[in-house]
């Protein structure tokens, strides 16, 4: 084996472990605000993802152990679970996770080869195929009856016999759903915002969740697990687009802070759009990627058929990555074109 003969102590496992750790504040906030049901979703997705990963590795003739321990499957599972409605039925979780791991990851060649973010592919398949089941969001405990206990959540998720009234008491529309419904009813933004779900910036509770994801994301940035370009550009893309629309017609377009402080945006900016495998690699490319994803998210929220657009925006930008990379190749040391820096 030729040089170098020493390596830094980094590893894929370490990177993935930090990503999972950075999700913990968000998960804790989730449990606190929306009840412990998310833990069941996370566990179910994790188990499904690991089983699917192991089966696919075996089937493709790859060694199971080094790839299972890289934790990438768990990252995919958690990101998908956190994107799903917290009271989604078990088969929805399993279907989404299986699709993410088997089709979006392994059929494209496994770790490092997938051109689309697997978690977002799983999410997109579910929201296109099962739009009704994808709306079972638990409301924040401030606005609902006491949140479901772990056992009750399990009963809901696994299709047990739960009284309709109990379920109706805890589920409610997300702020983005509420906004969309209100606007479809020809209400103005000010009228829509009188709905109790809207809090200081985003939705009640939801804004705290967004804050927790932001905190985890900043941790990843501080540890140099992710760069600043994608999250900043993504947030800027959303803020600028929302701000531009809001500036021209505040009655029909929501305020930029509201759009920014959605959990999906923070999760997308720091954990999903920063997925290195399916993202742009050059510094300028990362800015283009983030800005594009932010703009597309807003475009889908405003004019598209779905209340949120983070997943589709990121998938569309994944599609553009080879092009972005090719046209944003940085200048090299001693490269022609510009004068040497001083």
């Amino acid at each position: 084996m030729p040089s170098p003969f020493i390596l830094d102590r980094s590893s894929v496992t370490q990177v993935m472990a930090w990503v999972l750790a950075a999700l913990l504040p968000g998960i804790a906030t989730y449990v606190w605000l929306f009840g412990p049901g998310i833990l069941i979703t996370l566990s179910l997705a994790t188990v499904t993802a690991l089983a699917a990963e192991a089966a696919m590795l075996k089937a493709r003739g790859y060694p199971v152990r080094p790839f299972l321990t890289d934790l990438s499957a768990i990252v995919t599972a958690w990101l998908l679970a956190l994107s799903l409605p917290s009271l989604a039925p078990w088969w929805l979780i399993v279907t989404g996770t299986l699709f993410a791991i088997v089709v979006a990851k392994h059929l494209y060649g496994g770790l490092g080869q997938n051109i689309f973010n697997p978690a977002m592919v799983g999410y997109a398949v579910l929201i296109v195929s099962f739009p009704v089941q994808m709306t079972q969001w638990a409301g924040p405990h401030e606005l609902t009856a006491a949140p479901l206990t772990l056992a009750q959540s399990a009963a809901v998720i696994f299709g047990g016999d739960v009284p309709r009234a109990t379920l109706d008491a805890v589920t409610m529309a997300t702020p983005l759903d509420a906004l969309r419904t209100g606007l479809l009813q020809q209400l103005t933004i000010d009228e829509v915002m009188t709905h109790p779900i809207f809090g200081h910036y985003g939705g009640v509770g939801f804004e705290w969740l967004a804050g927790a994801f932001l905190l985890g994301g900043l941790l990843l940035w501080a540890l140099r697990i992710i760069g600043w370009q994608v999250p900043l550009a993504f947030l800027a893309g959303i803020w600028l687009t929302a701000g531009f629309l809001n500036f021209f017609d505040a009655g029909r377009f929501g305020p930029p802070w509201f759009h920014l402080f959605a959990p999906s945006v923070m999760l997308g900016a720091f954990f999903i759009a920063t997925d290195p495998v399916s993202g742009a690699t050059t510094p300028r490319g990362k800015l283009v990627f983030g800005l594009g994803a932010g703009f597309l998210t807003m475009a889908i929220r405003t004019w598209g058929g779905f209340p949120d657009g983070v997943a589709f925006a990121i998938l569309l930008m994944n599609l553009c990555v080879p092009l972005i990379d090719q046209y944003t190749q940085p200048r090299i040391y001693g490269g022609a074109g510009k004068e040497p820096r001083t």
Binding site: F5, V12, L111, G112, P276, G279, T281, Y333
Partner: peptide, 29 residues
């Protein structure tokens, strides 16, 4: 002093190599 190098995994395009490259290349490409 020189533990055997761990086995290689696929490239995840994390671009740490690009950040470390003194020639400012894109090693992953």
């Amino acid at each position: 002093l020189f533990p055997p190098l761990p086995k290689a995994l696929p490239c995840i395009r994390c671009t740490r190599c690009a950040d470390a490259c003194p020639a400012e290349l894109q090693p992953q490409e």
